[in-house]
């Protein structure tokens, strides 16, 4: 599904990603953890096609495509979804119109007819239920005036609408209350299929109680410094990152 090899990227001349390799198979859930500023969001943005980070080295293959060659919109149409750490407010653009455009653009890309108005509305209803989102929210402008938690739920709602093949969720759990966390996690679990994959960026092991990852990675200073099973998350929760930082430093010295 996704094959990242030795990916290096810099922002404004500063190296942020310093050689990342990651292999995600269909049906897998990968968790990425790591201290603030380690480059998690940068990695997510590079995968989604944001241009502010310049890729200086490495390759990313996604379903047989050279991902880095594709525009952000083509990546989305090919099934990549980024759940933003900080979703943007877009005044004046209604959620309905936004989703209708997104879905029909994707359908067009795959040679399908646009959804009829009634099918679209039905889909909106179903997915709203799935992620237990307040139906009034969907009548407003995109994220405008949404609370922090509502914005995150709205990301999951969009994901449910777009049914991505590879979803990258950047701290979708932060800022959520316990119920919302469960809802978001349920949303992910219901969408999970053998042929799609998730990369879940989080700081909290709690989310991983609900969304059970196959693999947990630790990103530190632009590198994946540790990869293990889900028990790694528990260990991090208990011990913090210091021991990993020490390990890394010792390795560098050694």
């Amino acid at each position: 599904m996704l094959d990242i090899k030795n990916l290096k990227a810099s922002i404004g001349g500063k190296n942020i990603l310093k050689g990342i390799s990651l292999h995600v198979k269909p049906g897998e859930i990968h968790a990425i953890m790591g201290p603030n500023g380690s480059g998690k969001s940068t990695l997510a943005s590079v995968l989604a096609g944001r241009e502010f980070a310049e890729v200086t080295e490495g390759t990313v293959k996604y379903m047989g495509h050279d991902l880095l060659e594709l525009s952000p919109e083509d990546r989305a149409k090919e099934g990549i979804f980024l759940g933003f750490q900080y979703p943007i407010e877009i005044p004046g653009v209604s959620m309905v119109n936004f989703m209708k455009t997104a879905i029909n653009e994707k359908r067009k890309h795959h040679g399908l007819e646009p959804l009829s108005a009634s099918d679209f509305l039905k889909m909106m209803r179903d997915k709203k239920e799935l992620v237990e989102i307040d139906s009034k929210l969907a009548n407003r402008s995109v994220n405008e005036g949404y609370s922090g938690g509502e914005k995150k739920k709205n990301e999951i709602f969009q994901m449910a609408m777009l049914e991505p093949t590879l979803a990258i969720l950047d701290e979708t759990d932060s800022g959520l209350d316990i119920d919302a966390l469960r809802i978001v996690a349920n949303g992910v679990n219901k969408l999970k299929r053998p042929d799609n994959s998730f990369i879940v960026i989080t700081h909290y092991q709690r989310l991983l109680d609900y969304i059970v990852p196959d693999v947990v990675h630790v990103l530190y200073d632009g590198r994946i410094v540790k990869t293990a099973g889900k028990e790694l998350a528990l260990e991090l929760e208990a011990k913090g990152y210091d021991w990993i930082k020490k390990e890394v430093e010792n390795n560098v010295i050694a």
């Binding site: 989604a48 096609g49 944001r50 525009s71 952000p72 919109e73 990546r75 989305a76 149409k77 979804f81 980024l82 933003f84 979703p87 943007i88 877009i90 653009v93 936004f98 455009t101 997104a102 653009e105 994707k106 890309h109 995109v142 969009q158 777009l162």
Partner: peptide, 14 residues
């Protein structure tokens, strides 16, 4: 905002 829309599959023009 542009990137947000593009990341949902909406092309630049649109």
């Amino acid at each position: 905002a542009m990137f947000y829309l593009q990341s949902r599959g909406i092309d630049k023009r649109e």
